[in-house]
Computed example of a mutant assay.
Amino acid sequence: MIHEVDEVLRGMLRGGALAGTGVEIAFDAPTRDWAARRNAPTLDAYLYDIREDANRRERGAVAVRDERGFVVSRRQPPRWFRLSYLITAWTKRPEDEHRLLSAVLATLLPQEVLPPAALTGALADLGLAVPITVAGPPAESRSLADIWSALGGELKPSLDVVITAPFPAYPEYDAGPPVTEGAAVRVRGVDGTLEDSAERRHQPRHFSRNAVRRAPGARSQ
């Protein structure tokens, strides 16, 4: 699932305001050694944090239907995970890096969810909207300064992009065969036999006195 989100994000960064620029897209940790090897304009989307969004957790079971709409199996609801990317621009001049970050903002800000047509694999099979937030405040448990310190580099302008993606929950249980016949009602007579049974058809019909309804105007015998 994570690699599928990577590919969708890569496609988004290559399009929009960055289409035709030839900027490289990387997902490496932006360490000093990595930065020293850059010889072309590069956008780096470093996945620095993965954690479950507990507020989205659901209970119960989800029905899985086939193309005819029949329930073929049941599974637990998907679990949602926040994938946090640190997006940085790497060029020879700070001004060019700022232009690249501006282009990233122009490309991603209009998107509230990942484009459904770009989803593949498990993300597409689930058929759920995958939200994306851009340049929001980082998680309280980790600051950007802590991230750069852990990478061994100097603080650099960056964009925090968070994609909250569903992850299929297992196992999946097969459902029973669908009901293909309608419900039927069988009526019992006063003698206890079923109305459509052979026994009932070959016996004289008896009625209780209370079950006989007189026609209007009829005299009692």
Rank of each mutant, 00 (worst) to 15 (best):
A183E: 12
D49I: 01
E199C: 00
P116S: 09
L108W: 00
A169T: 08
G15Q: 01
Q221S: 13
N55P: 08
R10D: 02
R74V: 09
L101H: 01
E97C: 10
V190Q: 11
L100N: 00
E112I: 09
I2H: 11
G22H: 03
V72K: 11
R57G: 07
V161E: 00
A106I: 05
G192N: 07
L194W: 13
H98P: 04
G192H: 04
G121V: 13
E112M: 08
G121I: 08
G189W: 08
E95Q: 10
V64H: 12
A169V: 04
R209P: 01
D33I: 05
G189F: 02
P77A: 05
S141M: 12
D53H: 04
L18W: 06
N55Y: 09
D160L: 07
D66P: 03
Q203L: 12
D53M: 04
A169C: 02
E97G: 13
T42L: 01
P178R: 13
E112V: 13
G60H: 09
G192K: 04
T88H: 03
Y85I: 03
G182L: 10
R74A: 02
I2K: 15
G60Q: 14
T133P: 00
E67Q: 14
Q221F: 14
R56T: 08
S84G: 02
D44L: 05
A169S: 10
F81C: 08
T180F: 05
T91R: 04
V23H: 04
R99K: 06
L101G: 01
A35C: 11
T164D: 14
L109M: 10
D174G: 12
